[in-house]
């Protein structure tokens, strides 16, 4: 997976350590996103009454939409950041 065009295919040969570090960073990114998704969609979708242990219809469809929208938000923010990045050089405020 590559976000915002990072991790393109232009790198020369990487050392073992660098490759493992890259894999670890990617794993962290995906895990972090998943955990945030679980937290956010739980807050937005799960009714506090806990009337039943299972998910009711409303909660289920809310979760489905919530996940798709989170991804879409991710993409949109990425696009905006790329636009922003074109007239912004880090380290020079």
């Amino acid at each position: 997976m590559s976000f915002l065009g990072f991790g393109g295919n232009s790198q020369p040969q990487l050392s073992s350590q660098q490759k493992i570090q890259a894999a670890e960073a990617e794993l962290d990114l995906v895990t972090d996103m998943f955990n945030k998704l679980v937290d956010n969609c739980h807050k937005k979708c799960i009714e506090l009454k806990y009337a039943e242990g299972g998910l009711n219809n409303k909660e289920s469809s809310c979760i489905d939409n919530c996940v798709v929208k989170y991804f879409e938000t991710n993409v949109k923010v990425g696009e905006n950041m790329q636009k922003f990045g074109q007239n912004f050089q880090p380290g020079r405020m």
């Binding site: 998943f34 998704l37 739980h42 039943e52 242990g53 979760i63 489905d64 996940v67």
Partner: peptide
């Protein structure tokens, strides 16, 4: 309440996991 809360949470994260994989595959 605690038992429903825990069960609901696990089912919730299971469902999020499925949708997450689908979306991830689509994005890739």
């Amino acid at each position: 309440c605690i038992s429903k809360c825990a069960e609901k949470f696990l089912k919730h994260s299971e469902r999020v996991g499925k949708r997450f994989q689908e979306q991830n595959a689509l994005m890739n």
